[in-house]
Amino acid sequence: MSVLPEDWALPAPTAITEAWFTSRTIAVQTCAECGSRQHPPEELCHRCGAMSFTYPALSPNGTLHSYTVAHYAVNRALAPHVPYAVVLVSLDDAPELRVIGNMPGVPIEDIRIGMPVVAIWEEHHADDASVVHLPQWQPR
């Protein structure tokens, strides 16, 4: 179902990205001191400088903010997979935060700015046997 090769690049989760890539929720980094939210996760809170965080799940609903359709394969391994769409989704619970993804199984011509979308998660098994859950998007 993935729009890219099965063995394409995967994130290597770190302390601040593990929740995002393993929890199967829209786990947005939230400052444990002042409650500020930020995405992508950073090593300290941009507002108060604290370095401890929680990762509460926000709604998986979002709105398609922008997209591009890649026709040129910038790497040889992608050549059998073009054209593919990459979408940018604004989270309904936090519209100022935006998330990149694909829309597996959705025809490219159906993708349009402003469409309501919902997150799904793709399970990927890395070489080191760890499991990564990549958020992707579907129409809702």
């Binding site: 729009v3 890219l4 989760p13 992508p40 890649a70 593919y84 990459v86 990149i100």
Partner: peptide, 11 residues
């Protein structure tokens, strides 16, 4: 930051 873009073919 690349962990949030490269896996989706945004390169």
């Amino acid at each position: 930051a690349g962990a949030f873009t490269a896996p989706y073919g945004m390169l």
